[in-house]
Design a protein around this nucleic acid. Structure first.
Lengths: 131, 131
DNA sequence: ATGCTCACTCTCTTTTCGGTAAGTATAGAA
DNA sequence: TTCTATACTTACCGAAAAGAGAGTGAGCAT
């Protein structure tokens, strides 16, 4: 696995390595680009059906949309309601858990919007200086 | 590119498609697992040199550590200080921008720790029900 | 009969991620 | 002279993620 962290595998870390693994996994899952974007449109528009979400998330493929929504459902972030009609109609909305996550991410959205320019400037400066 | 969002490429979205692209890119970058973990240890320990960070981030490889630190430096999240000694000594610390990002992510960390159990329960329930 | 809608699902290909291992530079210590 | 420490860089490779695109089913309208 790791070649670097052999001297101090787990210094004054969290508590349980299993808990820490779960936390890292969840961070990775929840901080996923598509997940974030989907949460955003569901916050904005409330209950939406599959193709409406697709419309609101430019660039997402059908595959990624399905996959992400499934995972979110499994994690308890969205509720999937199937209306037994033809053609099919499936609606998605955030659960309370999903909403609370959206709230938690609010600070990140604000940060990104507020600091976009700063990051771009920093990148330009970095790229400009001689290597 | 996209096969889905052909009807409404950019509905009532942000403003500029270029801005939106940047926002999405930044979200993805900033929400990166290694970036997050490195930010955490730099918050906790202040200024750290390369191998110290490696010690604190179990499982990261040299390659990923270098790569992630370089990107963070480019984005203006960390400052890299090279001390011209032998053997080399390089120290990293968060910039104000990096600290503010850490703060913005604080809510997410709290959410994850508070809701780990809920997510696990939801997953178990999802996996248990017949497909 | 054919076409159409919607929400997928499947397959195939491309891209990215990430690990291992080796190499580099430098000066002081053994 | 060889070894050691540190912070990388480079090359290679397999695994995993993601994108494109075609296919599916079910019923209603034409």
């Amino acid at each position: 696995m790791s070649a670097l962290s052999d001297r101090k595998p787990d210094p004054a870390a969290d508590l349980d390595p299993r808990v820490e693994a779960m936390v890292n996994e969840l961070i990775g899952r929840v901080a996923d680009k598509w997940t974030l974007l989907i949460i955003e449109v569901l916050i904005e528009h409330g209950e939406l059906r599959f193709t409406r979400i697709a419309d609101q998330v430019p660039g997402i493929s059908q595959k990624m949309l399905t996959q992400t929504l499934r995972r979110m459902e499994r994690d308890g972030l969205v509720i999937r309601t199937v209306h037994p009609v033809v053609p099919p109609k499936v609606e998605y909305r955030l659960t309370d858990l999903g909403s609370s996550l959206a709230e938690a991410f609010c600070g990140v959205w604000v940060w990104v919007e507020a600091n976009l320019h700063r990051v771009e400037t920093s990148r330009a400066a970095f790229d400009a200086r001689p290597r």
